[in-house]
């Protein structure tokens, strides 16, 4: 019985790599250069993927993951070290409080909720990173929140399929 339990835990920790891989994919996708300034209307995938895992895996708090991927984002985007780490932590922490209630909502309601959450993300980015004060004058920068809400069902479906196939709980 003990061996079985140990094997189960190994299997689970092995599957946690998938969580990190999806987040790494998000960082990779975010670092792709967009040729048009309308490209900034496409939201960062990393916070969206992070929010999905926070909601889906209610047994972890993901604060360290948020911090680590924030630092990675800072190096990639030449923002001050710790800036995005702070933004991601500020984004994840309130989500930890509401994630259990969110499970009873419909996908459409969660999408709207994600839109509001990503608006807060854009607001934090605009307030904390001086270089983005200029980006804030562009409507496309704020549209990213709306696009996040529209994209959420797709992201949700893909990640849920991955999670179910990998038996991540």
């Amino acid at each position: 019985m003990k061996t079985l339990r140990w094997l189960a835990s190994q299997h689970q920790s092995h599957n946690r790599w998938l969580v990190l891989m999806t987040l790494l994919f998000g960082v990779l996708f975010d670092s792709i250069s967009w040729s048009s300034s309308w490209g900034i209307a496409f939201p960062d995938l990393t916070p969206l993927i992070l929010l999905y895992w926070v909601m889906a895996l209610a047994n972890s708090n993901f604060l360290l993951t948020a911090f680590f991927f924030g630092i990675l984002h800072d190096v990639l985007y030449h923002t001050g070290l710790g800036t995005y780490a702070l933004i991601y932590c500020l984004l994840v922490y309130p989500m930890l409080h509401v994630r259990l209630q969110l499970r009873n909502k419909t996908l459409l309601q969660i999408s709207l909720f994600i839109g509001v959450w990503m608006l807060a993300h854009q607001l934090l980015v605009w307030l904390i990173t001086p270089a983005n004060h200029l980006a804030g004058q562009n409507i496309a920068f704020w549209l990213a929140a709306l696009v996040s809400a529209l994209l959420w069902p797709l992201i949700f479906m893909i990640l849920r399929t991955l999670r179910r196939n990998a038996h991540i709980r």
């Binding site: 708090n61 604060l63 911090f67 924030g70 070290l81 710790g82 800036t83 780490a85 702070l86």
Partner: peptide
């Protein structure tokens, strides 16, 4: 534990930001 982890992560981020700046 979660609350303290949040406070620690935010504090560390702020310290890093100040040192880097």
């Amino acid at each position: 534990y979660d609350h303290w982890q949040f406070v620690a992560a935010c504090a560390l981020s702020l310290i890093l930001m100040v040192i880097d700046e």
